[in-house]
Simulated scan of single mutants.
Amino acid sequence: MFAYSKIKVSAPGSLMLMGEHAVLFGEPALACAVDAKLVVTLQPRQDRLVRIDSALGQYRGSLDALEPMAELAFVLAVIERYQMHLSHGFDLHILSGFSHTVGLGSSAAVTAATVAALAAYSGQSTEPEALFPLALAAVHQVQNGRGSGTDLAASLYGGVIGYEMSPAEVRPLPGLPSIALYYSGYKMKTPAVLALVEQKASRQPELYAGLYRLMGQTCRAAEQAVRDQDWVSLGELMNIYQGLMDALGVCDATLAEMIHRLRAEPGCRGAKISGSGLGDCVLALGHLDAELPWEAIPVTVSATGVEISYETN
């Protein structure tokens, strides 16, 4: 008999507040969890089967011989890491409260939630500091070693975090800033954006290295502004960071129009691209009530990260 009939884990989506691109070159990043949630429910089985039910696909296989499935690659990579600790299989149901097409860190959220569910199922620690290395290893397995882990850390810890990649360090920060998010209507995949930036950087390596250092300086100042809950300074630093993103070549005409329209709105303290750029979302700091010609994504900063609940028969 199992101690629980069901393990339910919710993980928040996440947003990059600052640190895009530069975090991959040893500079700090700033991210937050958001109130859009993804929920993973695990039900123990008496046999060794693994069944996964998700909007991205259905999976059925043996815990002893997992078959690859691209749509569920992050989930299966996590399961691989727990194979040796599991005596029985399970059914996994994944329900997302937000679309994977909008940059709210859906891959990080499902990875974080699955790691927490399997840690609980196998009787291991479910503290964020124990889950994070396992979750990051799964992401790196799927992405051929790429991925900073910033979004994972935000999903696991909740609230606003400062983060550095190597060695990985997560710094939970106080305060929950007011934010608004707008979707441009299109996005370029992050690896493709990184490849374009890499091409540009190869022609001006010293200048790009200088840009990354400036991004790091800006992000460190922004982290202090969050600690002080100085939202005016944070907004100014967001605008500065956006200028550096523009210099990297990841701001197109639509994003530029969105940013300048948002900055003109009462209540907006700052606005910048959230994510790698060349599409996806623009983030604004402050209270905005404007009717703008882009899709508003209703989000607030979530104080909580991964949460686990248990049901008994």
Rank of each mutant, 00 (worst) to 15 (best):
A3D: 09
Y4F: 08
Y4D: 00
S5A: 08
I7D: 00
A11D: 11
P12R: 15
L15Q: 13
G19F: 12
H21M: 12
G26S: 10
E27Q: 15
C32R: 10
A36F: 08
L42R: 06
R45V: 02
R45T: 02
L49V: 00
R51Y: 00
L56A: 15
G57F: 03
S62W: 02
L63P: 03
E67V: 01
I79L: 02
I79S: 02
E80Q: 09
H85A: 13
H88V: 11
H93W: 14
L95I: 14
S99A: 15
T101P: 02
V102W: 07
L104E: 11
G105F: 02
A113W: 04
T114R: 05
A119V: 10
Q124I: 10
P128D: 03
E129S: 08
L134F: 01
A138L: 08
H140K: 14
H140F: 06
G145K: 00
D151R: 06
L156R: 00
V160E: 02
V160R: 06
Y163C: 02
E169R: 13
S178V: 06
I179G: 03
S184T: 15
S184P: 11
Y186A: 00
M188F: 07
E198Q: 14
S202W: 04
Q204H: 14
L207E: 03
M215E: 12
R220N: 15
A221Y: 11
E223S: 12
D230L: 14
S233C: 12
S233Y: 04
M238E: 11
I240E: 14
G243T: 10
L248V: 05
V250K: 07
D252C: 08
D252I: 10
A253N: 11
L255G: 08
E257S: 12
E265W: 01
G277V: 11
C281A: 04
C281M: 04
V282T: 13
A284Q: 10
L285H: 02
G286C: 10
H287I: 09
P293K: 04
P298L: 13
V299H: 09
I308T: 08
S309N: 06
